[in-house]
Simulated assay, not measured.
Amino acid sequence: MSSSTARTVADAVAETRASGAPLAGRTALVTGGSRGLGREISIAFAAAGADVAIVSRKKDACAELAAELAEATGRRVTGHGAHVGEWDRLGELLDEVEDGLGPVDILVNNAGIAPVYPSLDGVTEELFDKIIGVNLKGPFRMMAVAGKRMAERDGGAMLNISSMASGRPTAGDLPYAAAKAALNTLTAGFAQEYGPTVRVNTIVAGPFRTDISKAWDMDAVDEMARSWPSRRVGEPSEVVGAALYLCGPTASYTTGSLLAVDGGRLAAP
Rank of each mutant, 00 (worst) to 15 (best):
G133P: 00
E71V: 07
L244C: 02
A151S: 13
G263W: 08
R39C: 01
S257R: 13
K59D: 02
V240A: 08
E92I: 14
S237I: 03
A268D: 05
A53K: 11
A28D: 03
V198L: 04
R39F: 01
D11M: 13
P236N: 08
R57V: 10
L244F: 03
D154S: 15
S213V: 14
G38Y: 04
G91R: 00
A215N: 14
T124E: 00
L186T: 05
V30L: 00
D219E: 15
A63R: 11
S230T: 09
S252Q: 11
A267F: 03
G248I: 12
E40I: 03
M143R: 02
G32D: 03
G172H: 10
I54F: 02
G167T: 05
E152L: 13
G38R: 12
A14I: 07
N184V: 07
F140Q: 00
F190A: 03
N109T: 09
Y117F: 15
P118A: 11
V261E: 10
Y117Q: 08
A18M: 06
V84K: 01
A242P: 12
A66K: 08
I212D: 13
N201D: 15
F45S: 01
S162E: 04
I106W: 08
A47F: 07
E15P: 02
A225V: 02
A220Q: 05
L186H: 08
A70Q: 08
R39S: 00
S230C: 09
T254V: 15
G248A: 09
D95Y: 04
T8N: 06
V97N: 01
M150F: 03
A63C: 12
T170W: 03
K214T: 15
E126D: 13
K180H: 09
G195Y: 09
V13T: 14
H83E: 04
A151V: 05
L127Y: 03
Q192D: 10
S237Y: 06
I212S: 12
V52Y: 07
G147C: 07
L159P: 14
A10K: 14
G74K: 11
R199K: 13
L65W: 06
R35L: 11
K58P: 03
C247R: 05
L90P: 02
A267V: 15
T187N: 14
S3C: 05
R141G: 00
E15N: 10
E71Y: 00
G20D: 10
G74E: 11
C62I: 10
I203V: 14
G33C: 10
E64N: 12
A188W: 09
G155E: 05
E86K: 11
M164T: 15
L37T: 12
E193D: 11
A14L: 10
M150I: 06
A171W: 10
R153Q: 12
A111H: 09
